[in-house]
Nucleic acid binder design. Structure first.
Lengths: 250, 250
DNA sequence: GAGTGGTCTAGACCACACT
DNA sequence: GTGTGGTCTAGACCACTCG
């Protein structure tokens, strides 16, 4: 009934269990609001301790695959929430691909510019740093204009990125990952609605005064280092901007 | 050196430990990127098992208070991440207070309404539930109109909230916390820029067609229970809308 | 009372980073 | 080698739900 754990697989058991359960849910063997086997049942079936099962279920709760109710059981989350989580994040390219859209970009400029006070603050840089790489790009979805993106990048000392490299890779994040092992992990962002200025309107091919979403974001790597500060203008014709907050005080 | 656990306190040990550590960090006893005591050290100091310590540290990693590096130790997250995280989420009142602004609200309506398909889906409710509490409120910052907020609340069976209660407490979240121990923890949201409709414009005292941010959000409690579905319209004169994404796939 | 998830213990062994 | 976090076990008792 439940697939077995591969004892020769090096991946941790709890992650194997996560995989087993997500597969069952993604393939709709277990349906939303349906109760899944109890923790004790999993223990017997998979021959692992209850702690291990609980760890997997804990992870799956965070991932919005499952929710637990004390005294009752563990249940499958509604599909919408799972989908939501899977498409959250700021990776433009992956975001688009998940939705079955074709992303593309046009690089408008790439410069090595002096730091402004604002950018220095956002990138948490000290006084010793004086310049950063600035990218200006237009993003397209299914060949239709989507957004105007200005990125400020913190690269390792002496390193640089060329337009050719970026165009070859297609995605800035893939390139950074390949060259510097930068793995974008956390993004902090602020967004607000505004009227398109003359400049923004001309880039996005909108009328001046048309509503656009302005987003400022800072991207941190898995190692908690700042990687990018980005400013985005999006027309309202684009897909909604999704995000997920993990907050709340204790 | 480290405060002790209160053995007569009913709150779980791991949450008491979370509290102890967040206090140390908030009071800057432990500074960003500084290494905190090892798990084994905590075990001895607090007289708890390593599993319990790990659980607390796990939680604190999710909260961006700590990050762990295998073979090295556990470290304090940069302040920027924590600050951002602390002001993230959808608590209007706390958000405003943190910025030194004075929040206030005008309750337009409070009804116990039949569930629509959309709201049922968002709130992860089954077919047995038929009604929810619907709040419509106007939010002000420093006495200036900020946003139009429509909340759908899932309260425990038979429970209800009155306008008087809410006006007395001043904050919906404080009230929910006090009455039902609801602690908002995760919010999923979609936002988009749009032109103000006639209705929205009249509420927000804007011209029709003025840019507004439309936000749809679902709020989950610390226990991963759905608590609220909310629709917000914000004028562009307001403070930016903040959020934080945690990405990375498994 | 039986069954569920929630908390916790006291160990064990492993992978990784330092020196 | 020593010390760190990462994984895992086999139990225990509690709080809650439901028949």
């Amino acid at each position: 009934m439940i697939s077995d754990i591969d004892r020769f697989d090096e991946t941790p058991k709890f992650l194997q269990i996560v995989k087993i359960i997500t597969t069952k849910i993604d393939e709709e063997v277990w349906l939303p609001h349906e109760m899944i086997p109890t923790e004790r049942a999993f223990c017997e079936e998979l021959n692992v301790s209850r702690t291990t099962i609980r760890r997997a279920i804990e992870k799956l709760s965070d991932m919005f695959y499952l929710y637990r109710v004390q005294g009752k059981g563990t249940f499958v989350c509604p599909k919408e929430l799972r989908e939501f989580r899977k498409t959250s994040g700021m990776g433009f390219r992956e975001h688009a691909l998940k939705r079955g859209q074709v992303p593309s970009q046009k690089i408008l400029s790439l410069e090595y510019v002096p730091l402004t006070a604002k950018v220095r603050t956002r990138l948490c840089l000290g006084e010793t740093e004086t310049r950063v790489h600035k990218f200006v790009r237009l993003f397209y979805l299914d060949a239709k204009l989507d957004s105007l993106n200005t990125s400020y990048l913190v690269l390792p000392e002496g390193e640089t990125i060329t337009v050719d490299e970026l165009e070859e890779t297609g995605s800035l994040y893939s390139l950074l990952r390949k060259k510097y092992h930068y793995i974008p992990y956390i993004t902090c962002q602020e967004s607000t609605a505004m009227k398109a200025s003359e400049k923004v309107a001309s880039y996005l091919e909108l009328e001046v005064g048309y509503p656009v979403t302005y987003i400022e974001g800072v991207v941190w790597t898995l190692e908690h280092k700042v990687m990018e500060y980005v400013e985005i203008y999006r027309g309202d014709r684009t897909i909604p901007h999704q995000s997920m907050n993990v907050g709340g005080s204790l």
